[in-house]
Design a protein around this nucleic acid. Structure first.
Lengths: 239, 239
DNA sequence: TCAACGAATAATGGATACAATATGGCCGCA
DNA sequence: TGCGGCCATATTGTATCCATTATTCGTTGA
């Protein structure tokens, strides 16, 4: 019976209808920049290039549209949504608020054994990575994954589907993914990883207020970094 | 030319593809309770009862699913999502945070003439309504509309599509609509309307911090009222 | 008698054909 | 020569048919 249930669970993960696969492929293509922002997505062309009929393509486009990745006008089709810089900054602002709420919920509701294990693993993995004398590009990618796992665990621990839906909305904004720590300096990563330790402590201590505050600050600092980076490219810091 | 553009604008609102109409009808049926929570929605039955083919029904179901109104399992179809009481309470908690952010953005970014006019209209309309010696059921419904218009104007003034998307998510939760002030006492309405005045003042003064705080408190108080109401039905207040 | 396997049935997923709508270019007229 | 309307074409919306998957009921074996 355990066999059957595990098999079912496996299947539950593996259920890949064409529509979902197509959505994944298009999403990846958009986020990787393979498809330019503002480009129109024609159903027939997509279906031909992907080797499927229009039906799953349409379903995928509708899904991506409600993820906020595409714009849709009835009878005129879909186009890749263009994000203004202000929208990206706003997304971070919103995400800092929403993720802070998730941290608060997690602290209020407590962590399972499994969640503790996962989080602690991300913490030690990050410690190990930062113990190395210097970080290479691949290390940054690795830390991106670690960072994602940490935040993801907390989202789950919030036990609130709506919150997760909202965070997903935030993550659909380009440049706003958790993996984007890649772009930052080693000292920044050091500091952020330290934040992770503190946030975990706060949640463990069920100190919801502190968890919320730390998480808000944690994400907001990424926003500041981004803003600095964006304006820094054009003009050097004033002082 | 003005004629053409206004006509286009009209059409822009009137573009009602079958899929959208069907989605509206099903959504209304769910929110009104005509379809019970947990019920499975069969594509063929729906298409027959609505007199359209399965195609627009499928599109509508997918849309409603991504609105958070339906649950979906591949190869097994859609069912009306059942909300736990805790989820409804959570939704208010989230909404208080998100709407507060909207108020802050509105204060930071300022209101247009048109938005000022709309908001002021809701304020005087509410004043008039509350000046009446007593409120009847229909007055409460009217105030529900006023309340909705006030909040809606602020959502727009935030000039942030993502925030609006998130608020829409919150509003798809039954019992969590802005129109639900209907259920409350006259003194509560009085207080809430006074909140509206203060929030508007804060936004006009560009006091973003105050606007955010007031809005958070404003929505959170509705949550408290709801919790009181929910637990109050079962057991009288302890003190 | 219960459990497990299998076939029948019903529902969803996908493909294709047809209808309706939008867009772009061309022609005619002022 | 410039503007406006109309027609051709391309694209999306809808309907219907077929394929695939799930569920249920019945049968068979232990």
């Amino acid at each position: 019976m355990t066999d059957a249930s595990s098999e079912r669970a496996e299947n539950g993960d593996k259920v890949r209808t064409r529509s979902l696969s197509v959505a994944d492929r298009i999403r990846t293509a958009i986020l990787s920049g393979e498809i330019n922002a503002g480009a129109r997505l024609h159903e027939v062309k997509l279906s031909e290039s992907l080797g499927v009929s229009r039906t799953p393509v349409r379903a995928a486009l509708q899904a991506l549209s409600s993820e906020g990745l595409l714009d849709y006008t009835p009878n005129r089709g879909y186009s890749v949504r263009e994000f203004q810089t202000s929208e990206i900054v706003d997304a971070y602002e919103i995400r800092s608020t929403v993720e802070a709420l998730a941290a608060r919920f997690a602290a209020e509701r407590g962590l399972t054994e499994a969640e503790c294990t996962i989080i602690e693993r991300t913490l030690t993995a990050g410690d190990d990575l930062l113990a190395k004398p210097q970080m290479h590009e691949e290390d940054r990618v690795t830390y991106g994954a670690i960072n994602f796992a940490f935040h993801d665990a907390i989202h789950g621990a919030a036990r609130c589907r709506m919150l997760c839906d909202m965070i997903r909305l935030c993550q659909s904004v380009p440049q706003s993914s958790h993996r984007n720590v890649v772009a930052f300096e080693r000292t920044d990563v050091r500091r952020r990883h330290d934040d992770h330790h503190r946030i975990y402590d706060a949640i463990l201590m069920r100190d919801s207020h502190r968890a919320e505050f730390l998480m808000r600050e944690h994400v907001a600092s990424v926003k500041s970094g981004l803003v600095r980076q964006l304006s820094g490219r054009a003009a050097e810091p004033r002082r």
